[in-house]
Design a protein around this nucleic acid. Structure first.
Lengths: 212, 212
DNA sequence: CTTCATGATTGACAAATGTCAATCCGATTT
DNA sequence: AAATCGGATTGACATTTGTCAATCATGAAG
């Protein structure tokens, strides 16, 4: 079946998709020691499907198996658990040029304990486990970049634990303001509060105090 | 220079060192898909030096560069930061068959923000960065096991953050009791408290309440 | 058997943070 | 302009947790 489409629209669609892959390429180049070759990138490209998520749309719901490794090209998502009282606790806030997913579920094929949803309109590139594993085995650049990502992630996570066990709510807020001010812009305060492990009211009061 | 030593003592010393390497071998086998070959293990063995730490002895002090990747054969160590008030905050409690070290410092050769010391008499195997990297490049078993370790570590860390932002002190204690009761045996309550991000008195009161 | 040191416990109180309900503000939508 | 919606703010109050100081328990060292 053929569908008519205006040449302009087609043009725009293509260039949009091109830009998505380009973001991934730039990202990988940034962490690779050598510039990525065209042929190599062609393989990567074939393993990632572009997808758009509407605001509030789930990328993953608790109980599901996480089927994709997701690279965020544009937008913002949150990863969170929901406790017995129905309160959401945000484990991760992710924006452009980050990966998101439940690695445990993705790797072990177990049901996830996390929810992931889009905080705003979000464009991503998805890679299934099969595709992702194949890339690891066949594309050298890819397999060198992954450990680097892991490393950075682990260091950041360690620091977050340290902040969580040693800082007060106010210190944690100031620390975030210093180390990651962009997050404070991109997400509503409610979510920042949850991410820092405090109530929305507390964050509001801290802000009032801190910013005079 | 020759030093006299009783045959019995020599025998005991040798078998002791043998046991240390054996612990590492068992550990690696546990996470490897294939049984480790004798020749392969010989390479690993040559890259790790046995060392004993007395109780309270530092493995790493804040400001130093972390020079070794350390495998704990026997004993227990803690990794912690010290805040402006001089209060220690325990980021990690490690026992037998765990790795310890500051990965950021080890990898980037930057001064560490952490202290690591022995909570009891502790036997470890040390590998320098040069040796460790060589193993990664030359011993297949080793390079397959490392990502698995990373993965397990990352999943555990993620869960710890989740506990920290969503649970009360009592819930965190109960959670630890459930998921890692051994830690409660091996470390004094003061350290458990610090690890959970609460004061020693709070843990004491929680215990009283929980255990009737 | 004392002495000492290290943790653990307890009580009284202070400080930090959570909870709930009301209100406010800004951006849409009608 | 009126109605509405999602956040953010504020106040009053409850709860949790921290702090400090005293005491207790236990085991190691003299």
């Amino acid at each position: 079946m053929l569908v008519p489409i205006r040449a302009d629209d087609l043009q725009q669609l293509c260039s949009f998709i091109f830009l998505m892959y380009d973001a991934l390429r730039t990202y990988i180049n940034k962490y690779a020691s050598t510039e990525i070759a065209d042929g190599e990138f062609e393989l990567i490209k074939n393993s990632f499907a572009p997808k758009h998520y509407r605001k509030n749309q789930y990328l993953l719901q608790e109980g599901e198996v996480c089927k994709y490794s997701t690279f965020i090209v544009k937008g913002a998502v949150r990863q969170y658990t929901v406790d017995q009282k129905g309160i959401e606790h945000i484990v991760n806030l992710c924006t452009e040029n980050w990966w998101v997913g439940d690695r445990e579920s993705f790797t072990m094929l177990t049901p996830s304990i996390y929810n992931i949803d889009a905080v705003e309109e979000t464009d991503v590139l998805l890679s299934s486990k099969a595709n992702f594993m194949q890339l690891e085995n066949t594309v050298p650049v890819f397999s060198t970049v992954l450990p680097t990502m892991d490393f950075k992630n682990q260091v950041a996570t360690q620091k977050r634990i340290n902040a969580q066990i040693s800082f007060t709510a106010e210190e944690r807020y100031l620390n975030l303001l210093e180390t990651n001010p962009a997050l404070l812009q991109q997400f509503p305060q409610t979510m920042i509060a949850s991410y820092l492990g405090v109530s929305a009211e507390t964050i509001s009061r801290i802000r009032k105090k801190v910013h005079q």
